[in-house]
Design a protein around this nucleic acid. Structure first.
Length: 380
DNA sequence: CGCATTTGACCTTC
DNA sequence: GAAGGTCAAATGCG
């Protein structure tokens, strides 16, 4: 469970604007999801009803997303690091929270999935990273501590290349870009711990090499869009000998794929989303009340509440590709944070294209076989 | 069939 | 020549 700031300066002054309708839409979508969840036992074997319910939900989020995109499009500046999922924490206007039905608040708190937890984890890393001064390779090292769930603390160091090499490996004999940046990334606590947490971009592995005096091989990745958009970004991933739960990730080259107007990293329109969704055969697992819960929206609601702060990011177990067609909307503007966060949540819910995961698995993870849809009495 | 991963061979640098 | 980095054919998966 992540601990978020309990108080937040009221820098997101709430006025009755388009934000309201966006938040209303998001909340409405959540409410519809709640309704669907509670009705599943009764309509789970009625495809037509299910379809209609899903359509309603999709339409609602798609509309919200479209409006958000309209806002974000004008504001977004796209640095190459950190990745697309690296957004600051979400802030909901207080008024919105106060209008939420208490039972719905409870549902929001409890309707977290493991995948969402992973998503949040990566966002946590991302937030931390984005707040760091990432020094380049020629400089010294910097490090920081991450807030962890349940009070535990994870460390993620952003260090210079030379610093890493001096402690973890022999001096490099070979070419190394001056722009290389090395990040120490803790392995995900959930999902496939063999792979480093998702950083929001989609990577294609093009090589693996045993490294002298290293227990673990080094993996070489390049941007999935290298060919299509001549994106030169690359990264190397290697587990530390003395700490297998930590990955040393060295980034080389800047992402240029998000600069392209045709690049898939640009958020798609709501209509496209709707089309995508409607053309997919989606099977869902009936939500289990015992699913790892409670963190995808870690919020404080109620009297004097300071708002919902939600971390949305993206590690998808190996899915690694959390991060579907990675959305690259990013914005330094504080005023844009709300839109970005909501857009990000919508992305996590609806975007597909991550090299390693179906984004719907964020929402309904684990074995999503048709059988799970069968009412209890129809199962063998 | 298209895309991603694996892996041995090859290239580059020291 | 050794070691890191990349290529590309083979393979697997959805």
């Amino acid at each position: 469970m992540f601990i978020f700031n309990k108080t937040q300066p009221n820098k997101h002054k709430h006025t009755v604007t388009m934000e309201d309708s966006v938040y209303s839409l998001i909340l409405k979508g959540c409410k519809l999801s709640q309704d669907l969840q509670s009705n599943l036992p009764t309509i789970g074997n009625q495809p037509n009803l299910l379809l209609r319910a899903c359509d309603d939900i999709i339409r609602t989020f798609a509309t919200a997303r479209e409006r958000i995109n309209g806002q974000v499009g004008a504001q977004a500046q796209l640095p190459s690091l950190p990745g697309p999922f690296f957004y600051p924490p979400m802030m909901f206007p207080e008024q919105q929270l106060q209008n939420i039905d208490p039972s719905f608040q409870e549902w929001l708190k409890s309707s977290v999935t493991q995948a969402m937890e992973d998503v949040i984890q990566t966002q946590l890393l991302a937030d931390q990273r984005s707040s760091l001064t990432i020094r380049d390779h020629a400089e010294g090292s910097s490090s920081t501590r991450l807030r962890g769930s349940g009070g535990d603390v994870q460390a993620m160091d952003v260090v210079s290349d030379s610093a890493v090499r001096s402690t973890t490996s022999p001096p490099l004999r070979h070419r190394r870009s001056e722009n290389a940046r090395t990040v120490m990334v803790p392995a995900p606590r959930f999902g496939n711990v063999e792979i480093p947490p998702e950083d929001g971009y989609t990577w294609r592995k093009y090589g693996q090499k045993e490294i002298l005096n290293s227990k673990y091989p080094r993996s070489y990745y390049r941007c999935t869009h290298q060919k299509l958009y001549q994106c030169p970004a690359k990264k190397q991933v290697q587990r530390l000998d003395n700490d297998p739960s930590t990955f040393e990730v060295t980034y080389n080259g800047e992402h240029t794929c998000h600069m392209s107007s045709t690049a898939p990293s640009i958020p798609v329109s709501a209509s496209e989303i709707t089309q995508e969704m409607s053309s997919q055969t989606i099977t869902m697992q009936q939500p289990s009340p015992t699913t790892s819960l409670g963190t995808w929206l870690s919020m404080e609601v109620g009297a004097g509440g300071s708002g919902i702060r939600s971390m949305v990011g993206g590690y998808s177990g190996g899915s690694g590709d959390a991060g579907a067609g990675p959305s690259t909307i990013r914005c330094d503007s504080k005023d844009g944070d709300q839109y970005l966060q909501v857009a990000n949540m919508a992305d996590a819910m609806f975007n597909s294209g991550s090299s390693s995961s179906n984004s719907m698995e964020f929402i309904f993870p684990a074995s999503m076989d048709q059988e799970k849809w069968q009412p209890e009495d129809k199962k063998d």
